[in-house]
């Protein structure tokens, strides 16, 4: 039988891996890079943080207080939004196509004339 702490760890691990799977499925299914970034940041971040919390709980049960794992959690929370912003900004500045059903794009209007990226009219081929 499972003890109480093992049930807690199992819940953490299963939830974490399920959320990571959702993140990867989102990366596979969603139509353009900006929507994929939503899946990659939100789901994958919370999934990994939950899983590391589970690992931390396990070692706490063994009597080890692992500071590195707590540092990892803090680090993932701090860096995921920054990476998402920089990647999507660089994609937008280089004219990566938005999805056809995107409603409006106020960022495109804010660029100065000489920096405006060229967007092709034909769609990027999709799987």
């Amino acid at each position: 039988m499972l003890s109480l702490i093992e049930i807690l760890i199992s819940i953490f691990v299963l939830l974490g891996s399920f959320l990571s799977l959702i993140g990867s499925l989102g990366i596979m299914r969603l139509p353009d890079i900006y929507s994929r970034m939503h899946a990659a940041t939100k789901s994958a971040t919370l999934g990994v943080v939950l899983l590391i919390l589970g690992t931390f709980t396990y070692f706490l049960g063994e009597g080890i207080f692992s500071l590195q794992l707590l540092l990892t959690i803090a680090f993932v929370f701090l860096t995921a939004p920054v990476a998402a912003m920089i990647i999507s900004r660089s994609a937008h500045r280089n004219g990566v196509e938005l999805w056809g059903r995107t409603k409006h794009d106020e960022l495109q209007e804010s660029y100065p004339e000489h920096l405006e990226p060229e967007r092709e009219n034909e769609k990027v081929e999709r799987p």
């Binding site: 959702i22 299914r29 409006h104």
Partner: peptide, 26 residues
């Protein structure tokens, strides 16, 4: 909000039809 965001993401990804209407605002 993070938990709500993840529930939202699960609903979007697992629904058979994609009903998203993206857009960029200032």
């Amino acid at each position: 909000e993070l938990v709500v965001a993840n529930l939202d993401m699960i609903r979007i990804v697992l629904s058979p039809k994609l009903n998203v209407t993206p857009g960029i605002i200032a």
